[in-house]
Design a binder for these strands. Structure first.
Lengths: 359, 359
DNA sequence: CGTTTCGTTCGAATCGATTCGCTAGTCTGC
DNA sequence: GCAGACTAGCGAATCGATTCGAACGAAACG
């Protein structure tokens, strides 16, 4: 409860000697009001220290809260640290400004702590929030309970990536084709022992080498598609799943793959994000491996890692994706129909890939 | 307006053949309800596809929205990219979980675009939002209109840093003493030509060399205090203000200071954050200056910059600060009184400072 | 001078729940 | 068999605004 003593519009109206409805109109501007009346009402408001209509009451009446939820795939720490996510959120905030909406963060709880319960938690947290719309960011989850819940509530949604779903339009890049491009590049350089460092596939906190079933049954679409893009060119290669999209996680996974007999060591690692690739570079450095001499490394996203040589990676327009998602939400709020939007992703050849050396 | 057809609790109650109040109790659990009644109500809810109480209505009645605002000092891109901010926000989210609150982001618009209007914009955006509490993060602004507005509304607030203000308790570190520690370290190493790279002092988009008046009149308390900490030990030294807390901005400012006649070049730069310090290191590298041979560099915050040698800096517990701020908000929401909390900040001697070389 | 028109302001309904005093009805104990 | 203690469920008030048709007085018109 607000500290008592916060004035209401009714008190302002009474003090000004006008009706509640007239007072309301003075502040909403919905109808003309005589100047003298307006002045009296404004004076009354000032006198009572009234600071504008109660947002809850006003929202209830109009059916709009001015809040757009953003569902993040990971705990904030990782979402924020990834310059790509940061760019997406920045673009999103930019576009939402146009509809005077603010962003409510809805992180999915850390998978490793909660296992399969996490969906419940996210839904519970969400169902208490008044949301005009929601952007499902970060990762597309097949069969997402969050989507089911919001769909039932009739809340407009937009997905960033993810599996086809008629309940929400999406902003897409062709993850599979893009990664296939990277794989082709590696194949052309003569790489045969390649491995993939993949995003979490299920948000269940598992990590390590991934079986074929697990990969194909993955709920996190991006994680699956990017791995399959490699398979398309090089056939099935080992896939190691990390527990979070962080540099540390990438470094751990890479160390596991690289700290073996050189004859069996991969000559190239395909990381599903630049942040993970940064971890790979760190691992390589600490193992004394030269990049790209001993090891080629690729990433995904196209962010700049200031300390590293330019990554060979797929560049996708993060800020632009966020902005487009925001504009789609804005249109949905206007009642318009919105379709999937495809965004470009282009291969960038950097300094972290080179010819394979015989092991 | 929600797409029509979204059921209401009244319809559920009617279908179940109970009163509105009983149906409400079934979902809130505020009173015991016979099992058979409960079952009928739940069945009715399922049948109608009712997805829980309308958050707006429920919030209005209880006077709580479950939303805590987070006022950021910069546009999202910079706030997120700074690992220190990310840690603060992460800790904050963590603590707010305990009171089932979500975070609403309220970035102040980019100063450079809006000049002095920015306060209005932030306040306007904020007054439409139903907030149970607000954390003023990122930078403490003296005489902040945002604080004035929220105080008038009676919204509980907590500040991270900032000037003393009886309207809100704060989580503090002694910026001035901490930076003085850095300055003492530099003095002991023989540095005489030192300059400070400071945060924006006014959020007015200005940058460049700062006059004494501007520094003392700074509204951004942290920016002022950290510079004055250096003055306390070394006397007034040049202060260059950046336009944002980003590596790029730090690099620009550093280049300006360093790309001069070696005889006049500073032998040490004190950056007000590690992110800015990272920019300084980048500038030094591109100018061919050795750190710490030709130039000593210090930062603030204690984040890890993966590509750089360990910074000499002040370590402050970011996640912990966020968590404490969240807990303070939680206590305020419970109606408790809350006082300022001081957090430790400790000097860390890294590899970026060394003896001054005669110019 | 009576009637239409125009511009303001008012009343009442509404948004969708929560809360709590009260009334039936049931159970206990003597 | 009846007074007193308990229960489950009901009604009505309430949270604080927005909205829109109706009413009212004044001005314009014939």
């Amino acid at each position: 409860m607000r500290p008592a003593g916060q004035a209401t519009l009714k008190q302002v109206a009474d003090l000004a000697g006008v009706s509640l409805s007239t007072a309301s109109v003075v502040f909403s501007g919905a109808r003309p009001v005589t100047e003298s009346t307006r002045d009296r009402v404004l004076a009354a408001a000032t006198e009572l220290g009234w600071s504008g209509p109660n947002p809850l009451a006003s929202s209830l009446r109009r059916g709009r809260s001015g809040v757009v939820g953003v569902v993040l795939s990971e705990r904030l720490l990782y979402s924020f640290r990834d310059p790509y996510s940061a760019a997406v959120l920045d673009g999103l905030a930019d576009a939402l400004d146009a509809s005077a909406s603010s962003m409510l963060l809805l992180p999915r709880p850390p998978a490793s702590l909660l296992g399969l319960e996490h969906d419940q938690t996210t839904v519970a947290r969400m169902s208490g929030a008044a949301l005009d719309g929601v952007v499902i960011a970060g990762c597309g989850l097949a069969d997402d309970p969050v989507v089911t819940h919001l769909h039932a509530r009739g809340v407009p949604m937009v997905g960033l990536g993810g599996a086809p779903d008629e309940r929400l339009p999406r902003v897409l890049v062709d993850d599979r084709a893009a990664t296939a491009g990277l794989a082709r590049h590696l194949r052309d350089l003569g790489h045969e022992r390649v491995a993939v460092i993949a995003f979490p596939l299920q948000l269940d906190g598992a990590q390590g080498l991934v079986s074929a079933e697990r990969l194909h049954g993955a709920r996190v679409t991006e994680a699956r598609e990017r791995a399959l893009g490699v398979f398309d060119v090089l056939g099935p290669v080992p896939v190691v799943e990390v527990v979070a999209n962080s540099q540390t996680a990438g470094e751990q996974a890479a160390r596991r793959l690289l700290d073996v007999d050189p004859a069996r060591r991969p000559t190239a690692l395909v990381a599903e994000s630049d942040v993970l690739a940064a971890g790979v570079l760190a691992a390589a450095a600490s193992l004394g491996l030269d990049v790209p001499g001993d090891l080629s490394v690729t990433g995904f996203d196209g962010v700049t890692i200031p300390w590293a040589p330019e990554l060979t990676t797929v560049v996708q327009p993060g800020a632009e994706k966020g902005r487009v998602a925001g504009e789609m939400i804005n249109r949905l709020l206007e009642g318009e129909q919105v379709d999937d939007v495809a965004m470009p992703a282009t291969l960038r050849l950097g300094a972290t890939t080179g010819p394979a050396t015989r092991g």
